[in-house]
Structures are given as structure tokens and as C-alpha cells.
Design a binder for these strands. Sequence first.
DNA 1: TCAGATCAACCGCCAC
DNA 2: GTGGCGGTTGATCTGA
Lengths: 85, 85, 85, 85
Amino acid sequence: MAEEEEVLGNNAQGRLRSFIDRIERLDDDRKAIMEDIKEVFAEAKGEGFCPKTLRKTFKISQMDKAKRQEEEAVLALYLSALGLD
Amino acid sequence: MAEEEEVLGNNAQGRLRSFIDRIERLDDDRKAIMEDIKEVFAEAKGEGFCPKTLRKTFKISQMDKAKRQEEEAVLALYLSALGLD
Amino acid sequence: MAEEEEVLGNNAQGRLRSFIDRIERLDDDRKAIMEDIKEVFAEAKGEGFCPKTLRKTFKISQMDKAKRQEEEAVLALYLSALGLD
Amino acid sequence: MAEEEEVLGNNAQGRLRSFIDRIERLDDDRKAIMEDIKEVFAEAKGEGFCPKTLRKTFKISQMDKAKRQEEEAVLALYLSALGLD
DNA sequence: TCAGATCAACCGCCAC
DNA sequence: GTGGCGGTTGATCTGA
């Protein structure tokens, strides 16, 4: 009946450890996937595609079309007001 | 013999589509994992753990992994300060 | 009484131009300072100091300023871990 | 003839301190300017301008026009290849 | 020239 | 509903 480590209760302590472990595993998976994504961009670059533009393209493909056009309209408005178009 | 959509060449166009698709799939996986992580935090919160502290705890547990490497870096720093690099 | 350029209103247009101008000036200042910083590093390098190590040294000197606050944060973390937050 | 702190030589040590001090001062200036910039954006927002678009506008105003149009052309090409235009 | 690191901007959540 | 905050992303700069 030791008292050490009883601040949270052994039960809570075990749960805490379990949660942290699960998070760690999931986060490792996440990092692995991000590596994979980087590889795809690298491969595309190796075939002559511009990585920066590729990222923009992907982002736009994910965006709502209406919202995208609305944002572009506001931008065009500002640019026009400054004579930059 | 249509000429439309030939700006990139059919080949390049197919490659582009393939790359974007692969990225999209990987990104979906990534998002799914992030959802899982959120669920773990939510579950922990449901058991009375403070999510914010949990996050700090996880971060610190990761940092401690990195600590050894940081110590190496500090060593290198001091060596460098002595012009021994 | 021309109507062109009235999409934002002349007033808003002038304000926009003013904001952009102010930002531009400030950003120029910022860039100039960053050039100065680079010059200091270059000068130090010219005297035999390792720029990379110099950067780390500077960063550490700044971090130590922040250390006290970090310690407060750690205290709060532990309090939180005990459910006392 | 004390030996302490002689690793770099007193001279080099003084120079090092001087460099770090200069960098610190310049960096403080830089941070102050960034605060000013943030204030301008906040003020613009207070008058109804969209901060995000404002930032884009500023960035474009700083870009070389030719380069900008070239980048947009590549983006349009990719989007077109994906049928997203 | 390119990969890697550093840093500022954006975007969600959370608390108020 | 709003403001602050943590995390993520994107860009810039350094060093190989």
C-alpha cells in the first residue's frame, strides 16, 4: 500500500498514460503521412511541375468554388482601386 | 483528333491529375487521423482530464525525446564557440 | 462627374491607398533593419565568428529572458495536472 | 594574469558581446515595426477592409508584374488541365 | 541550386 | 459573439 504516485489515483494515472500513448501513435501516423505527401510533391517536381503552383492548385481544388470566386472578386476590387490590375 | 486540353500534353495532364489525386487521398487520411486525435482528447476530457494540459503533456513527452539531440547540439555549439567546428 | 473607380467610393479608395502606402513604408523600414542585421552577422563572420553559432547564441540570450515566464508556465502545468486549475 | 574567460580571448569576447548587443537592439526595432504594421492592419479592419485580402493586395503590389502574371498563367494552366476553371 | 530551418500568418477551438 | 491561443501552413533565408 505505497502512497507514491497516488496524486491522480492509479486508475486515472493509467488512463492518462493510455491517452498519451494513443495520441503518440496517432501522431506518428500523421507524421508518416506528411512525409508521403512531401514525397509526392518531390516526385511531381522531378517531372517538371512547379511545387508552389501545385500546392495552390490542390488548395483551390479543395475550396468551395463560390467562396473562391468571391475572394478573388474582393481582391480584384482592391487591385483595381490601386490601379494594379 | 481534338486539340483541346493539349496545352500540357495528355501525358502531363494525366500525371498532374494523378499527383493531385494522390495528394488528396493522403490528405484525407491525414484529416481522418487528426479527427481521431481530437476524439482521444474529447474522450479524455469526458473522463475529467484537462485537454489543454493534456496537450502540453504530450508536447513535453515529445520534447523530452528531442532533448538528447538538443544536448548534442549544445555541445556542438560550445565546440563551435571555441572554433573547433 | 465621372463614375469610373467608384466601386469602393473615392473615400474608401483613398483610405485603401493610404493604408497600403503606410504598410509599404513600414515594411521598407523593416527590410532595412533586416539588412542591418545581416550586415552585423557578415561583419562578425569577417572577424572569424561562425554566423550559425552566433544566431544560436542570440536566440539563447533571448530565451533566457523568457525562461522565468516559462517556469511560471510549468508551475501552472503541474497545478493543472493536480486538478487545481 | 587570470585565466578565466580566456577561451576566446578578451578581445574576441568583447567583440562577441558587441555583436550580440547590436543584434539585440536591431531586433527590438524590428519587432516594434512589426507591431506598427499590425496596428495599420487593425485600423484598416476597423474601417471595413478585409485584412486577409489587404495582405494579398500588398504582396501583389510588391511583386514584379511580369512574374506575377507568369505565375498566374501556370496556375490557370494546371486548373484548366484539371477542369477546375 | 536545393533541402532544411526559422519565422510570421492563418485558422480552428475555447473561454468569456 | 468575440478575443485569445495553439496548431498548422506557407514563405523566407541560410548553409551545403
